[in-house]
Design a protein around this nucleic acid. Structure first.
Length: 652
DNA sequence: GTAGGGTTAG
């Protein structure tokens, strides 16, 4: 039993008794602990007690603050006993407040409550209420804080300027009208011009997206030289996706000479991260270096995120490498893992994950695992994915009734589906108590890519019956499923119903799926007509798809049209040239082939050879076209040939 | 009194 839980096990009643009978405090047992630890702590406490004999209320308060910082309820309790004996609590509301804060910060709210009265003979004053309200908010019970505030108001006790910031910190569980009411009272009492109250009000309004109210509070502040006030506005606009306003505030802040803090830097960086605005992100990095805030761990994490989301993996890595290994926190690791995955370095992401585990400093949490699972999926690393699943079970990260359930299970399902293990994906899916649209989408897509069109289709019907609204992604999966299974008329029907029945406007992705489906099925004219007539802009993907269908069905005329458009859209990309070249080779038009090769040389287009690979017992085996270098080449071929023949016999 | 990380398609 830990010292803190031992104290928590004393009932509130017994503590009240202790407060009134100071001598009894002396008999409270010392914390149980291993001998070496015990002797050190006990020596420290005795030492402190000796010093207290000569000390006053002020030193007690200072000690309590240290106890709170160190989460050391045991020493705090010793100080408590001493203060009771000396009668320090009787005439110093500040002393009571420090004591309450100490218990609250150590997570012992029941003790905090008992110290500040609550009994009939010992009424709580505004200081006591402030401490309790703040304690509830610190300990994640903002509703209790609100209740305490109402009780205080009902007793006719007026809040002071310290009440509002604490109370408003829990405003995310309130109604917007509560904030307005609190604001009204702060105004009446004249506290709304206090900069702490002001920034708390700005923050609360921003949480409810009431930007104009927040801006008004800010504009009416008599003194605006406080960074926190500005930071609140910058961060608020940023989080509400009003990046231009965030930047305007930031620029104005600079003009007015308000000093930047690490909070300003992270706030404004998050705007540039979402916008993937590398140039401005870099400027902020420069500013962070100038002001010295780049050494802050949160700033470093935000920089990793910014560079990564701008696809500058190397710069993200250099920030990560420059950090002190002991500073790197969970956020750092999660950011750097996510960024590797985002930039397509899936191998790097898995290697880093292994490094994180080996370092032993930071334990992966659910965010880490939900980041790494899709990476496993993309690499088809089923074994690693399974190990992570096992880790989650062993560490009790699953089966918890938390709000992240869908997130985690969706990542697991996706990993299994991408690795081709649809049975396990389905098992996870079936075990989920609540499913969101992503859960259904993952299964629909999973069945779709495995050419299990009917199963994908069934999933879709069940999803609709379960009352989950399909979204854009659902239809991408569904149309893909039709494509892979050759359900041409059904695919066409879904595209038409999307807008008419489900009120979802098809995007270029949806058209691309259908065009690809039509092309593969040999309906080249129809595919071409749709590409020309569709109400969205055409993309290289569309024409590459048509081009490869032309090759499949030997249509050189349409191929030339598609090839021309593809060249207009992306002259530097090799895909179009390769497709055209193969097509000309098959048609025996070797003159055009050499023309194409010249064009490629002129444009400096290079073709990276495609490869496939498989991982067996931690060994990676890679294969290129016409590559006979594998030591087991002969036996692989012996297995492969009958399979190829079998597939061909089914297809024809 | 203020700040940072995660799932589904293409």
């Amino acid at each position: 039993m830990t010292a803190a839980s031992k104290i928590e096990n004393l009932s509130v009643g017994s503590l009240r008794f202790l407060s009134r009978n100071p001598d009894f405090f002396a008999s409270v047992t010392k914390p149980p602990a291993p001998a070496s630890f015990y002797s050190t702590v006990s020596a420290q406490i005795e030492d402190q007690q000796k010093r207290f004999e000569y000390h006053n209320v002020a030193t007690c308060i200072a000690t309590l603050q240290r106890c709170a910082q160190r989460n050391d309820a045991v020493s705090g309790q010793q100080v408590h006993g001493f203060m009771v004996r000396k009668g320090f609590l009787d005439d110093s509301p500040r002393a009571v407040t420090s004591l309450v804060n100490m218990y609250a910060k150590c997570g012992l709210m029941r003790h905090a409550i008992s110290v500040t009265g609550g009994s009939e003979d010992h009424e709580r004053d505004v200081f006591g209420y402030n401490a309790i309200i703040s304690g509830f908010v610190i300990n994640g019970s903002p509703l209790d804080a609100m209740e305490t505030y109402r009780e205080m108001r009902a007793k006719g006790i007026f809040p002071d300027k310290y009440t509002f910031p604490s109370l408003l910190k829990g405003s995310h569980v309130m109604e917007a009208s509560d904030v307005t009411k609190i604001h009204g009272l702060a105004f009446k009492l004249g506290f709304d011009s206090d900069c702490y109250v002001g920034s708390a009000l700005v923050n609360s309004y921003l949480k409810f997206r009431l930007m104009e109210d927040a801006q008004k509070v800010f504009d009416e502040m008599p003194e605006r030289d406080d960074s926190v006030l500005w930071n609140a506005l910058v961060i608020g606009y940023s989080q509400n996706f009003r990046f231009e306003d965030a930047l305007k505030v930031f620029v104005k802040m600079r003009e007015e000479g308000v000093s930047l803090t690490r909070h300003t830097v992270t706030g404004v960086l998050s705007a540039f991260t979402v916008l993937a605005d590398l140039d401005n992100g870099r400027s902020i990095h420069g500013l962070a270096v100038k002001t010295g805030s780049d050494s802050d761990i949160v700033v470093s994490n935000a920089l990793i995120d910014m560079y990564g989301k701008s696809k500058c993996l190397e710069e993200a890595i250099s920030i990560f490498e420059a950090m002190d290994e002991r500073e790197r926190d969970l956020f750092t690791w999660n950011s750097v893992l996510c960024v590797h995955d985002y930039c397509g370095d899936h191998d790097g992401a898995l290697a880093l994950f292994q490094k994180m585990l080996r370092s032993g400093r930071i334990r992966p949490d659910l965010v880490t695992l939900t980041t790494v699972l899709p990476t496993c999926g993309r690499l088809a690393a089923l074994q690693q994915g399974r190990e992570i699943h096992g880790y989650m079970i062993v560490n009790g990260l699953l089966n918890r009734n938390n709000s992240n359930d869908e997130f985690i299970n969706n990542s697991l399902m996706d990993m299994y589906a991408k690795c081709g293990d649809l049975r396990d994906a389905q098992t996870v899916f079936d075990s989920m108590r609540s499913k969101d649209s992503a859960s259904w989408n993952i299964m629909i897509n999973g069945y779709g890519v495995q050419s299990c069109g009917e199963l994908a289709w069934d999933m879709f019907s069940t999803m609709c019956k379960a009352g989950v609204k399909p979204d854009e992604i659902t239809f991408v999966g569904l149309l893909q499923a039709c494509n892979h299974s050759g359900f041409v008329s059904q695919g066409r029907k879904f595209l038409e119903e999307m807008e008419r029945v489900y009120k979802i406007v098809p995007t270029s992705d949806h058209y691309t799926c259908v065009i690809d489906m039509l092309g593969r099925a040999g309906k080249l004219e129809e595919a071409y007509e749709l590409a020309v007539a569709m109400p969205v802009e055409d993309s290289p993907v569309v024409w590459r798809s048509i081009l490869s269908s032309c090759r499949l069905h030997g249509n050189t005329e349409l191929a030339q049209v598609a090839g021309k458009r593809l060249y207009e859209l992306e002259p530097e990309h090799c895909g179009g040239y390769v497709l055209m070249s193969n097509l000309y080779v098959e048609a025996g038009r070797y003159e055009q082939v050499s023309e194409l090769r010249d064009a490629m040389r002129q444009q400096n287009v290079k073709k990276t050879p495609g490869s496939s690979w498989i991982e067996i017992k931690n060994d990676l085996h890679v294969f290129f076209t016409d590559d006979k270098t594998h030591p087991e080449y002969e036996s692989i071929l012996a297995c492969l040939s009958p399979l190829t023949h079998h597939i061909m016999s089914i297809c024809h």
